[in-house]
C-alpha cells in the first residue's frame, strides 16, 4: 500500500475538505442570507460585486481580515482571543462523522450522534467565555441568556433524539440513514409505524435546532435592538469573522442532523440509485438551510420568557409523551 492510499493521507484529505466546506459555506451562506432577506423585503440584496453579487463574500472576507485586532479595555485578553476558536473548532470537528453519502464520511464512528452532541456542548462554553472575556455588560447579559437558552432547549432535543435512537437501535449516523432506504415514505419523518407523533418530533427537533444555533426567532443572544450585538459586541475584524464562521458551521451541523435523523440523509426520495447520494444529501441540506433563513426573515424575535416557556411548558412535555408513546408502540408492534 502506497503512502497516498494510507489512513493518515485519507484523514488529512478529509480534514482539508471539511475545513474548506465549512469556510466556503460560511462565506456563501452570508451571501444567501443577504440575498434572501433582500428579496423577502422587496429589495435586491448584494448586486454590485460580481454577477448577482457573488463575489461579495470574498470582498467582505478581505475587509474583515484587514481590520486591526483591537483588544477592548477591561477585557481578559486570553479568553477574548480563545473564545471564537472554541466556537469554530468543535463545529468543524462535528463534520467528521456526518455521512455525506454512503462512503463519503471521514470517520464512521459507532457513537457518531453522541459525538456531535458532545462537541456541540463546547460551543456554549465558547460563547460564555467570549461574553465574559469581553468585559462588556451587554456581552455578559447575552452570555447568560445563551446558557439558559441552550440548557433549556438541549432537553427536548435530546429526548427527541432518544426516541429516534430507540426506533433504529444505533447511534451510528450512517446506519440510521441506511435503515431509511426505499423512497420518501420510508423516511423517519413519515415513520408512523414507530410512533404516531413522528412528524411532531421532527418539528420539535427543528425548533430546538433553531434555538441551539441562536437563530431568529430565538436569537436572544444577539438581539441587536436590545443588546447591540450581544456576545459579538466587542469583537473586531477576524475575531468576529471566526465567530460567524462557527455560527454558520453550527447551523449546517444542525440542518445536517435534521436531514440525517428525519429526512433520510443521502437516500433518494424515490428509491432509485443512479443519482449519487451526496447530491440528494446536499439538496436536502440546503433546502433546510433555506428554511432556517426564511424563518429568520419571516418571524419577529420572541421575548426571553416566551422562549423559556415554550421549551419548559410545551416542548418538554410533548417530547416526553412522545418518548413514552414510541416505547409503547415499539413494544406492542
Amino acid at each position: 500500500m502506497s503512502l497516498l492510499q494510507s489512513e493518515p493521507i485519507r484523514v488529512l484529505a478529509f480534514l482539508v475538505g471539511i475545513i474548506a466546506f465549512a469556510a466556503l459555506n460560511a462565506a456563501y451562506l452570508v451571501w444567501l442570507e443577504r440575498k434572501e432577506a433582500g428579496h423577502m423585503q422587496r429589495r435586491i440584496g448584494p448586486k454590485e460585486v460580481g454577477p448577482f453579487g457573488l463575489l461579495q463574500p470574498i470582498v467582505d472576507g478581505i475587509k474583515l481580515m484587514s481590520k486591526q485586532l483591537f483588544l477592548p479595555k477591561g477585557c481578559d485578553p486570553i479568553l477574548f482571543m480563545i473564545a471564537p476558536l472554541m466556537v469554530m473548532v468543535p463545529a468543524i470537528m462535528s463534520f467528521v462523522t456526518i455521512p455525506f453519502s454512503e462512503t463519503l464520511v471521514a470517520r464512521d464512528i459507532n457513537i457518531g450522534l453522541l459525538m456531535i452532541f458532545a462537541f456541540a456542548s463546547i460551543n456554549v462554553l465558547g460563547l460564555l467565555l467570549g461574553g465574559w472575556g469581553s468585559g462588556n455588560k451587554y456581552a455578559i447579559i447575552a452570555a447568560a441568556r445563551t446558557v439558559s437558552q441552550n440548557v433549556a432547549y438541549e432537553i427536548p432535543m435530546l429526548i427527541t433524539v432518544i426516541g429516534v435512537v430507540m426506533v433504529y437501535g444505533t447511534l451510528n449516523l450512517n446506519e440510521i440513514v441506511i435503515q431509511q432506504a426505499g423512497g420518501f415514505w420510508h423516511w423517519n419523518v413519515l415513520n408512523l409505524k414507530a410512533s404516531l407523533l413522528m412528524p411532531v418530533m421532527f418539528i420539535i427537533f427543528f425548533i430546538c435546532t433553531l434555538a441551539e444555533t441562536n437563530r431568529a426567532p430565538f436569537d436572544m443572544a444577539e438581539a441587536e435592538s436590545e443588546l447591540i450585538a450581544g456576545i459579538y459586541t466587542e469583537y473586531p475584524g477576524m475575531g468576529f469573522g471566526v465567530f460567524f464562521m462557527g455560527e454558520y458551521a453550527n447551523i449546517l451541523i444542525g440542518c445536517a442532523l435534521t436531514v440525517i435523523l428525519f429526512l433520510g440523509g443521502w437516500q433518494s426520495p424515490f428509491g432509485e440509485t443512479f443519482v449519487p447520494g451526496v447530491i440528494w444529501f446536499l439538496l436536502k441540506l440546503y433546502a433546510i438551510v433555506f428554511t432556517v433563513i426564511w424563518i429568520r426573515w419571516t418571524y419577529p424575535r420572541t421575548t426571553f420568557y416566551g422562549l423559556l416557556n415554550l421549551s419548559w411548558k410545551i416542548l418538554i412535555p410533548i417530547s416526553l409523551v412522545n418518548l413514552i408513546l414510541t416505547a409503547a408502540m415499539l413494544k406492542v408492534f
Binding site: 456542548s121 462554553l125 465574559w132 447568560a144
Partner: peptide, 23 residues
C-alpha cells in the same frame, strides 16, 4: 464512549455550570 461522555458531561455541563455560578 467514555471519551464522548467525558466531553458531554464534564466540558459541556460541569464547566458551563461552574462558569455560570462564577458569573
Amino acid at each position: 464512549f467514555v471519551a464522548v461522555m467525558e466531553m458531554l458531561i464534564y466540558v459541556g455541563a460541569v464547566c458551563v455550570t461552574i462558569v455560570f455560578a462564577v458569573m
